[in-house]
């Protein structure tokens, strides 16, 4: 190659013409897509602000400590808070041992065969069953067949079945996260497989199980349709009795109360519904935040 031929031809690597246009579109697309990503969040913020304006004036101690009433200005959420807490406590008590037990069996003991595959597929499908179907199940089995009526016990059992697939899935994931070397180490020291699970695998999986549990509680706390299906849409003006027979009392929950007020044509009840929503959202966001904190805390230790 001679030197003359190699005279540098002027080239530019700047974006010109078509490339410039393509790059302009590409740069614009970043902001368009970011905008689209933000739409949902913006809607949520607007709704939150609107709701705060309507609801905060009604939100006081009287609102929290009063029973529901036909008069909007004296109606409160006392019985629905009690109902929600009671139902959720028993939901967790029923669902978590069963969920963790299933997860342990699936991950640590189950034979690797068609039965296990069936159980896995079944749980994945149950996770997609609409909550209202769980409501129908609760209605037919717990309320009618077992004659529990629309009680706290029936509600808790229904919600427990509803959150079971979700908690099994998160527990399985948590157990999976425990490195196999921990199991091998324990088995090599002569521990039985159950001792290995109890002393080593479960503590290691605890953060994940706790996180999944709290998120499931958050979901159950907001559930409305399944509880209405079992007949929990009632007027409750008493506190649940702290006894075993109290489990058979009828109940209401915070989301049911919000639904009730939403249906009322009178605008005063709109403020009550908004105030109830504030309490409900604080609980749900609080649970979500708690889940994050628990995960980080336990992971560190």
């Amino acid at each position: 190659m001679s030197f003359v031929e190699a005279t540098p031809d002027a080239i530019t690597l700047r974006a010109e013409g078509r490339v410039a246009r393509r790059q302009a579109w590409s740069r614009a697309s970043r902001w368009i897509l970011l905008g689209a990503t933000g739409v949902g969040l913006v809607v949520l913020v607007i709704l939150g602000i609107d709701n705060a304006i309507v609801g905060i004036p009604s939100l006081d101690w009287d609102f929290l400590s009063s029973y529901p009433s036909r008069k909007a200005e004296i109606a409160g959420i006392r019985s629905s808070i009690f109902g929600s807490v009671w139902v959720l406590v028993f939901t967790v008590a029923f669902a978590i041992p069963v969920a963790v037990g299933s997860a342990i069996w699936m991950e640590e003991f189950a034979p690797q065969n068609a039965i296990l595959t069936t159980v896995r597929l079944n749980i994945a499908n149950l996770a997609g069953v609409p909550s209202i179907i769980y409501g129908i199940l609760g209605l037919a089995v717990f309320v009618r067949l077992m004659e529990l009526g629309p009680s706290i016990l029936a509600g808790a059992l229904t919600l427990a079945l509803m959150i079971l697939p979700m908690t099994v899935i998160t527990s399985v994931e948590a157990i999976n996260q425990v490195p196999p070397s921990i199991r091998e180490g324990s088995l090599a020291l002569g521990a039985t497989r159950w001792q290995t699970v109890w002393y080593h695998v479960l503590p290691g999986a605890m953060p994940g199980i706790m996180t999944g549990t709290i998120l499931a509680v958050a979901r159950a706390a907001g559930e409305t349709a399944a509880l209405i299906m079992i007949g929990a849409f009632t007027f409750i003006a008493f506190d649940p009795a702290l006894s075993f027979s109290g489990l058979l009392d009828s109940f209401t929950t915070l989301p049911i109360q919000v639904y009730n007020w939403t249906l009322r044509p009178q605008t005063e009840f709109r403020a009550n519904a908004a105030a109830g929503i504030i309490v409900l959202m604080i609980a749900v966001i609080g649970l979500n935040a708690l889940a994050l904190v628990v995960r980080d805390r336990l992971r560190q230790s």
Binding site: G222, P255, I277
Partner: peptide
């Protein structure tokens, strides 16, 4: 978080 909001809240809105 949008998926975690109870649906009765969306219903009200």
């Amino acid at each position: 978080l949008l998926a975690g909001v109870p649906t009765v809240v969306y219903a009200y809105f």
